[in-house]
Computed example of a mutant assay.
Amino acid sequence: MSSRWGAVAAYSLLGASTQLLWLTFAPITTDAAKHYGVSAGAIGWLANVFPLLYVVLAIPAGIALDRSFRAALTLGSVLTAAGGLLRLVSDQYSAVLAGQLLVAVAQPFVLNAITRVAGGYLAERDRPKGIAVGSAAQFAGMLAAFLMGSVMEFHTLLVAQAAIAVVSAAALVVALRAPALYHRSSEHSGFAAFRETWRDPFVRRLCALVFVPFGTFISLTTWIEALLAPAGVSADQAGIVLIANVIAGVVGSALIPVWATKRRRELWIMLVAVAVTAASCLVLAVAPGFALAVLVFTLFGFLLLPALPIVLELSERRVGASEGAAAGLIWLSGNLGGLIVAGVVGALVDHPAPAFLLMAAVVLAAIPLLRGLRSDVEALPSITTGEHS
């Protein structure tokens, strides 16, 4: 059985591009507000529209991917490139907002496709690795956004990111001209596939599980600067903390899921990630500071971020041909968790210790969910993740 890694590489590059465009203005919020003559809150909405639209579009995008995979993913590719280019049409906030909205619409069509790309273009033994690579690329796109924003001049930044979006979209469109190597038929399609997938208790438990760590991660990355400021941590230092977190997440996502799948230790590694993340929040509640923040964010980034590709791979093994529906539900749950948990933590942003304690409690709620998944995960078929020729 052969694998077509070129398609996975092109998809991973586009996935990274969507994250890059999403977080363009996160490291330069103040400068962007001055440049466009708007408030910092208005700049924040250039990123906040993404999880909001994801919640709305996750299911329609999943339906489109299950019905006509290549056409739906091509649409996501084109919209991503168009959004990057639209931000260059005018040096006005309205043009940038319109571009961000286009990319936000494209994002569910791209990210929901990760398990479908792996299942269609890779042999079974390579699929965990493909999902891990695609997930790591997304975190790498986040890292690139932080780094490019800190070193590049404003207009040059937008031009460079538009070029990356166009090149990645073109590469994937070309890769998709070749049909998938592996096809799996399903008795259900469209909304019926989502309904049947949601009826599976295992999928519902995975969605509940993703809600917790995803929500905690988004809360920590959203509010870390404000929560650490009373301890004397500057905005630049908070940026270093986030960069360390994402670098660790990229490395962890590339290594841990494949190891966990091969040894059937998926739930064990997620339990360790939950424990370390909760302990990190407790430590920051008691003794916040720059050096300690770098350490704990690196640790939980390495362990927690790989939970996403692990969950996606488990869903792909469970649902087979309805992986688009399952991925859509999982991404929907994760983004909804981010909106809700980050919103609650935002109300405590002036009280760092209670905020960190709340996030520790939230992430610990994953433990009973992990226990509830044990029998279903043990019943899933094993995958031999050997090397391919």
Rank of each mutant, 00 (worst) to 15 (best):
T385R: 14
L57Q: 02
R318Q: 10
R264W: 06
A231H: 06
L369H: 03
G190R: 08
V362I: 11
L380T: 07
G320M: 10
G337L: 12
L209M: 13
A16L: 15
L255D: 08
A325I: 08
L206H: 07
G249Y: 00
L53W: 01
L102W: 11
A180D: 13
T216V: 15
F300N: 00
A229W: 08
L348K: 05
R127G: 04
G41R: 13
V103S: 09
V345H: 00
I164E: 05
I218W: 02
A16D: 00
Q107A: 11
D200Q: 15
R87F: 03
A123I: 09
S315T: 06
A180E: 15
A235Q: 14
L267P: 06
S12G: 14
T18R: 08
L305W: 06
L65Q: 00
A285E: 13
A180Q: 15
G190Q: 01
P128A: 12
G83F: 02
S382A: 14
G337S: 10
A287L: 14
F302D: 10
F139G: 01
S185V: 12
A248W: 02
S253Y: 06
D31I: 10
G337I: 13
W268L: 14
A95R: 10
G252F: 00
L380Y: 03
A273V: 08
E378K: 01
L97T: 08
L339I: 15
L329N: 09
A208L: 15
P257S: 09
G239D: 05
G301W: 06
I59Y: 06
L332R: 10
A275S: 03
L86E: 08
A16M: 15
G252C: 00
A171H: 01
A178V: 14
D200C: 04
F69T: 08
T197A: 07
Q19V: 00
L147F: 04
Q19A: 01
N48D: 14
L220G: 07
T222G: 00
F214C: 08
I340V: 15
I269E: 01
L111K: 00
P288C: 07
L380E: 02
D376L: 04
L373H: 01
A140R: 02
A321H: 02
A169D: 05
T74P: 13
P306G: 02
A9T: 14
P27I: 07
L111E: 09
P309V: 07
L295R: 07
L102Y: 02
F211A: 04
A61T: 05
V272E: 00
S39Y: 01
G190I: 12
F50R: 03
A342V: 00
V286W: 14
E387Y: 08
R67I: 11
L242S: 04
W45D: 10
Q107E: 15
E196I: 01
Y182M: 12
A104I: 11
S185G: 07
A278V: 09
V286A: 14
A379F: 03
A162P: 02
I330C: 05
R265E: 07
L122N: 14
L157V: 04
F191W: 15
L295H: 06
L364K: 05
A254G: 08
A26P: 00
G44K: 10
E196A: 12
I310D: 04
L46R: 12
L73W: 10
T29Q: 15
V174N: 08
A7S: 15
P257C: 05
V272N: 03
R318M: 06
F214K: 05
K262V: 01
L336V: 13
L101R: 03
I164L: 09
E316M: 11
L176Y: 11
P128F: 11
L267W: 00
G141D: 02
S168F: 11
V105N: 01
